[in-house]
Design a protein around this nucleic acid. Structure first.
Lengths: 207, 207
DNA sequence: CACGGATCTGATACTCGGTATCAAATTGAG
DNA sequence: CTCAATTTGATACCGAGTATCAGATCCGTG
């Protein structure tokens, strides 16, 4: 629904259908192969044709699974956004928005603690490759869009009022802190816990 | 120095030299022509060949003046970053970092007030074109890099300590607020002053 | 002024990401 | 089984960006 090319019988039909399952497995394998190649040779030095050939797919078909090369890498961020938004909605109503945002990021810090090595190489690639940095920021804008309504609700602000910049500002600033913390985490090679860097970052803004 | 292709005798020699002046003139004309075409037909629907032809330059030479198509648009942001950094350095030492950041952005809000129509179309293009949004964010990261040392100084923090995320967090969050305010300003078609939107945005974070 | 090295230019050819099209193959429902 | 919908690969195309190279232009020096 977001931007991935979809089939006609998408999120509607109850029976998963053999076709849909095949599609999912192929997608997964593309992601696997591509990630291996990316970490081996770097994102830019890996061509789409190479990935397609390795998976045993035609170039054209690969582009039907993933609209762009970036999406192969950034696809998983879609889910992360939903998770953060859900976590935020689950925070108690009387919690201060800033604190609620901080806590909603724990779904990410926890995941990183569980597979630090993997997260480290993934984030490193994301930060070292300019085109991926750009795409990552686009995703963050989507995350921001997911978080803003809940922040607005907690602030008692009507959602679609572009002249009240407070909800967007809180969400955008929190995500900026998350980025700063992630960058620092990669720079430290993961020696300092991400949660701690994030605490310091967001703490600097709550006085 | 940043990324624009430069000549050997760059920022060193005292005499401007005819060659350098010509270069500057051509650069300026390219920017003019390109901006006209971009606003007329949109960034994506304008090809580099079209710009080159209109300026009377070969495609190859155009790429010697501007390494990428984006740089034709984003070039001016370089200067803005320097201006903000200078304004920040000029703020009184006892001012709170957040307030100092807010005030350093006035160099931008003032400029927008002086030529609102022009700023509006420029920002609109920047926000509506995905590839430009990406490039714009890259520039903001550079701005962040310019601001961080001064923030660190005011906080009494050694600059190159990636584990202390506070200076970066303050700079990144402030720039995020600036983005939010700019987006709102464009959405409002400039009816609400940018400075006011920015006050609200950054005010939401200082409590 | 003339020369010679450094620089700029245009032309050409190339790589790579992404789009469009079309006929053949595959699937799944009736 | 059959037929319509979908998927696939092949091909051709477009635009951004890079590399190369020969010719033109500039500029300091003798």
């Amino acid at each position: 629904m977001t931007e991935t090319a979809r089939t006609a019988a998408e999120s509607a039909g109850k029976p998963p259908g053999l076709r849909e399952r095949m599609r999912a497995t192929v997608r997964a394998e593309v992601v696997d192969v591509a990630h291996r190649l990316f970490t081996e040779q770097g994102f830019d030095r890996t061509t789409v044709d190479q990935i397609a050939a390795e998976v045993g797919l035609s170039r054209a078909s690969l582009f039907r699974y993933f609209g762009t090369k970036e999406q192969i890498v950034l696809g998983r961020l879609e889910e992360s956004g939903r998770l953060i938004a859900e976590a935020l909605a689950a925070r108690p109503d009387d919690e201060r928005p800033w604190e609620a945002l901080r806590r909603s990021f724990d779904v990410l810090t926890r995941r990183n603690e569980q597979a630090p090595e993997q997260a480290l190489t993934y984030l490193r690639m994301l930060q070292e490759t300019p085109s991926l940095r750009a795409g990552h920021h686009e995703k963050q804008l989507i995350w921001q869009g997911l978080l803003v309504p809940e922040i607005a609700r907690r602030l008692g602000v009507s959602p679609d009022r572009p002249e009240d910049t407070r909800p967007s500002a809180l969400a955008a600033a929190a995500l900026a802190c998350l980025d700063v913390a992630s960058t620092g985490w990669v720079a430290c090679e993961g020696t300092v816990p991400l949660a701690e860097l994030l605490d310091r970052a967001m703490g600097a803004l709550s006085e």
